[in-house]
Amino acid sequence: MVGDDPNCHHYVNNKHKKCKTVGIESFNINVPESATQKELLKAGREFNNNPLVDAFNIQSPVPDNFNFNEAVAEINPEKDADGLHPYNPGKLVLQEEGPLPCAPAGIVEMLKYYNIPVQGKHVVIIGRGPTLGRPLSLMLSMKREYANAAVTVLHSGIKNIKDYTLSADIIVCGVGIPGFIKPDMVKSGCAAISGGITWQGKKLIPDIEADTGEVAGWITSRLGGVGPTTVAMLLRNTIIAAKKRLDISGLS
């Protein structure tokens, strides 16, 4: 963890709690905001070189004086719990096995769990970032089970967002703007998934306005939506890394 952001503390503490629950030993290195980029890279190398560490991640966001991408690129790709090292999104593009970014992988699991049809459907993803929109667009457009969809990626360069969302069978919004998707922007019966949240004081506000549930067929719950699946996927990536190191198959 880098710096002292209270939300980051919350997320990191939650990850430690979940690790304890499932029997994974975990610890973190705190890099203070006053540290240098070199010190952050050194912390990453410590994890890389520690034989007791199977996987780790760098909690984002990091303070502005640090280069997150450079730090992620220093992670041993075999220990990349977030699936963000450049090597691993490359494997995703090539449809090869590797750690998947946790938030989009969790959303795919959610679609499976609730039996939301994906094959041949129109999925609209709002947001094109490397942790959600971009990898999710790859996952859902692949030719495989629980994918094979027509995927449209929308972003800040698109003015007429509603023109696209109204034809979507599945909408995933990950822009971090509270209530960005409103009831008049979705078609009846669609699945509306909020991949972005905003803290307003101590309250979490999703990207999808609650009233959208009057039109949609499915909507993520305000609390306990995509977040828990993201953490679960992080631990799944960790255990897969451990098994890979020990050359044991299963759970992939």
Partner: peptide
């Protein structure tokens, strides 16, 4: 609200149970 709610909690529990089982197997193997 007419929409059904999608909670991530049961999915996370299912995945974490699998992870817990696998972690136990790995520990048993030393």
């Amino acid at each position: 609200m007419s929409a059904k709610e999608m909670s991530g909690i049961p999915i996370a529990e299912k995945i974490l149970n699998e992870v817990k089982k696998e972690a136990g197997i790995l520990k048993d193997r030393g």
